[in-house]
Design a protein around this nucleic acid. Structure first.
Lengths: 344, 344
DNA sequence: TTGTACGCGTTATCAT
DNA sequence: ATGATAACGCGTACAA
């Protein structure tokens, strides 16, 4: 025992009557080891409550047992769901999660990331949208030798580097639902430029209208930036158009809430006078009035899978050994609540 | 230069023509150093772009340059605000943030935390409510030698270990506002048992009523657990009472949103038939209808101060040197929106 | 004011 | 299958 109180590999070796290296082999599950020796060492380890020192391992391996969460996402709930999913995957492992927000748009963004990855010697990073849509970010990880998994609304990398949802299909389905309720004048509140998710969702919307042969005049499209306020503004713009749209698809829930707000301020009733669908199924969706029909993507599950991909092969695989391949594509579903009604 | 590509302290020492120790002194701002030597070494450092290896430092110092965020908080927005404040304080320093959720209520909770702190050798931890309300958690940090700062709704530790808000006073003020609008039958939706914040807020509510000589019958108090659903249930209970309350104070915004929901389902108009005040000023407060009058506590600022307390003295103090003492008490303010009206 | 030698706890190399 | 010895990069006695 050292003065710190924690037993070290030396203590284990001494007491077990073997060399440090043998203990190290036990820890790292080296295949070439006598069964008896291994049992003896493991007994001492359990006895002493020995746990390898992460700092020393990091130094020797030149690699830290940290998984980074790199994001530049304005939506708090989304980030929290990702963290929850990651931590679920990391629970019980030797890995910890370190969070690193990035300033997309800053010219030094890439350098910041490089410094972070090089200095901390991360085991791997989970790249959230929208930063992860930048290919040079992925290339940087590759160059540095840091594992990475990107998370996004569309597949933009190989399966081991990607967990994706099917935003386009999902929005197409949501829009078809609107059409099935008889709506023909349907407005779109688009997401911000530069967000791949915004593009995918818009494409899905256009897909559905085109297939149904429903016109989409320019006036039925308003730009938003995923915030509540932009939803209010865009909603007002759409509601100014005559004849008014009878339904609106907003590219996320915040903006959908904004539209409801705008509608109510003009004395319009939702869903009687205006049907609304959002995207994300954040808590606000279920808590506003009327409860919002929206698209839910399994964000925590995606993050969990992403983290599992990152640590697979690098962690102690305690289970039977037959590692199940983590999925790369996740399906979103339409959650029907009370913000959609048949057209009058 | 080593094979990793990163220059080490040895490279700097060799090129500058000094010993490792001298370089180490420069890095750690040792006072006893020749000006000329320091300048020369610093030149080489800048030249090489040398950055001390955190893993090696962690090993030698037996202390990692990581700040932990330990929480068991059900509210996503609160946690995100804390993270934002922490990261703001940590930006530009050598510290990173690692997040660690805890399962309060689990019998192994304290052991989990101990393992985490001992293994990772954290520089310090920010303890969020409600876990931080448990004194043994703080004692554990002390025993292990890990710096800590607690965050809470009331002062429960010395200033260097605490950032607190004045929940009781704030709620008292909010309730007085309700009274000033003529309300006399005011309901309370309490927070969950075991949350100190719930207790403080309730006390503030009772303070105001008592001082005004307004009765608080047991029927005007409903229990909640800080969730939307519990707010709905509690709201229904309160609205069943005859005569109905004309106003309700909910101990957080989620529950306040639930009350609005419950009121609307009975055809009641907010604020005409029922005034409501919440607490937290989460995004939902501004986004529901009607916009919610609520109490805002400066959560990000508190977290920022907390992180600053944690790293003060331990970090490179780049500024002039006269460190400003971080505050320990933060004032909450009433945000008046549209969910309160004078009594009919 | 500066340098030497060693410790921190682990993994890797190359023996045996 | 196992062990001696050297990295890994930095901090600290102690000496000079």
């Amino acid at each position: 025992m050292q003065k710190t109180g924690q037993p070290t590999i030396n203590d284990v070796a001494r007491i077990a009557g073997v060399s440090k290296k043998t203990v190290s082999r036990v820890i790292n599950r080296s295949p070439l080891l006598g069964d008896e020796t291994r049992a003896r060492v493991e007994a001492v380890i359990g006895d002493l409550g020995y746990i390898p020192n992460p700092q020393a391992r990091a130094l020797a391996l030149r690699r830290n047992f940290l998984i980074g969460l790199v994001h530049d996402n304005p939506n708090a709930q989304t980030v929290m769901n990702v963290q929850q999913g990651m931590l679920e995957a990391l629970r019980g492992t030797e890995f910890e999660m370190v969070v690193r927000p990035l300033d997309r748009g800053s010219p030094t963004m890439l350098d910041d990331l490089r410094h972070f990855l090089e200095r901390q010697r991360l085991f791997g990073v989970l790249l959230m949208p929208p930063v992860c849509e930048n290919d040079s970010v992925a290339q940087l990880c590759d160059a540095i030798g840091c594992r990475y998994v990107r998370m996004g609304s569309v597949t933009l990398d190989t399966p081991e580097h990607m967990v994706a949802s099917n935003d386009r299909e999902a929005v197409r389905g949501a829009t078809e639902y609107l059409l099935s309720q008889g709506h023909r004048r349907i407005g779109l509140i688009a997401g911000p430029h530069g967000f791949r998710s915004a593009r995918e969702r818009r494409l899905g919307f256009e897909d559905a209208l085109a297939e149904a042969g429903v016109a989409l005049p320019r006036s039925m499209i308003a730009d938003g930036n995923y915030t509540f306020d932009s939803g209010v503004t865009a909603g007002e713009r759409l509601l100014d158009v005559m004849p008014r749209p009878t339904a609106v698809f907003a590219c996320n829930d915040e903006m959908a809430a904004g539209v409801i707000h705008a509608a109510r301020q003009r004395g319009l009733d939702v869903p009687r006078d205006l049907s609304i669908i959002g995207f994300d199924d954040t808590p606000i969706a279920a808590h506003i009035w009327p409860p919002l029909t929206t698209v839910r993507w399994p964000i925590a599950s995606m993050a969990r899978s992403a983290a599992l991909k990152l640590i697979s092969g690098g962690a102690e695989e305690d289970d039977g050994g037959d590692t199940v391949e983590e999925p790369s594509l996740f399906l979103s579903t339409l959650i029907r609540r009370a913000s959609v009604a048949p057209v009058a």
